[in-house]
Design a protein around this nucleic acid. Sequence first.
DNA 1: CTTTTTACCGACTAGATGGTTGGTAGTTTT
DNA 2: AAAACTACCAACCATCTAGTCGGTAAAAAG
Lengths: 207, 207
Amino acid sequence: MEKSLKRMATMQRMQVTGLELFYKNGYYNTSVDDILKELSLSKGAFYYHFESKEDFFIQIIQNLVVRKVYSMLIEPIEGHENTLDLITNCFENALETAVHNELDYGFVLSNFINEFNGKNPEIMKYLNDILKIWEVNLVSAVQKGKFNGYIDRHVDSEGVALYLISSFIGIRTLMVETAPSARKYRFMTQLRQYFKALENKEHISHN
Amino acid sequence: MEKSLKRMATMQRMQVTGLELFYKNGYYNTSVDDILKELSLSKGAFYYHFESKEDFFIQIIQNLVVRKVYSMLIEPIEGHENTLDLITNCFENALETAVHNELDYGFVLSNFINEFNGKNPEIMKYLNDILKIWEVNLVSAVQKGKFNGYIDRHVDSEGVALYLISSFIGIRTLMVETAPSARKYRFMTQLRQYFKALENKEHISHN
DNA sequence: CTTTTTACCGACTAGATGGTTGGTAGTTTT
DNA sequence: AAAACTACCAACCATCTAGTCGGTAAAAAG
């Protein structure tokens, strides 16, 4: 609560614009000057508020990306309904924002992971943390599904979580340039096919 | 056949080293000088053989990447055995080379796609072409599987191909930094689960 | 043997980039 | 009202990068 309103407002503006440009052009292809030009601010302002470009980026991850991943990918699957339905809807919504070219934070995450993978361990640490949070929450969702009788007890929860994240990361990559809407539809259909293989066949449906 | 042996040998050396470095550090994070230092060659040599860095990269894609994608991801699924088994083995092998940190060309491809996606249309054209070839061949493999009675006739071949490529791209991203061997195993198990949902249940097995 | 071509050298240029620094207008504190 | 601090400016620096260019040794062609 120590930081003045003005300070926080400026930092927020910088981070929002920074994320937009980093996402659109990549971290290494976006210069600090690009961001400042967009905001009509100067170099001095930037280095007054942030230590370095890298520090700036890490703060963006922690302030913007983490929270959005929570609200878009984690909270939606925490209910007590059928886990597979929850995940289906969650993916459906996330991919739908992607179709409309909005910031889909699941992809923001995997996009940056791709850019820094094996290249910048410092930043990867933060990105892997978020990924881990997503993974852990998917695992417990699947376990809950098994406990509640929606999912076959023999499925490997960790495996399912990994497979889901993999396919999500992949489809988002493929949706960037070519036929996003059609690909989303095809993807969702196959996801449902996959889920059929995980269902508990003895479960008494209430439909 | 006009080009001299010396010329071709040097160009080949440059391309092999170039691909290695581009793959390891990314295209934009690898300078022409980096490649030349590795080969103890000079700027003059580089621009004598290639028009530009971009031209150089495109030649790498067409000479090295395309061929490897064919031999690693397309030819292995062209047999007449059970399509789902062929794909399973193909993915298994591709991911195994990945575990040993060798150049896995499926990932080389998706790695570059990630780097240029929405940023360099000229290069993306070439990358999307290769992706398309892979996709088309997966589609016909699935169709063959339906025709031969291994795969349920109601499955959407294009959807399956897309889902397979998505999950492959995704798992390769996730295998770069964390527990590649364990993740490969988990992934393959889930892939088999998915394939169970595609199998033709009326097919008379010969096992 | 002379001329031309091939394959390569390495100094140089122009532009970009991350980061530094001395300065200053406006606000807050004393 | 003086002192101190906040938020920002803009010129500057060192470094890196793609690409250029004049030159040259060795091989091939004439």
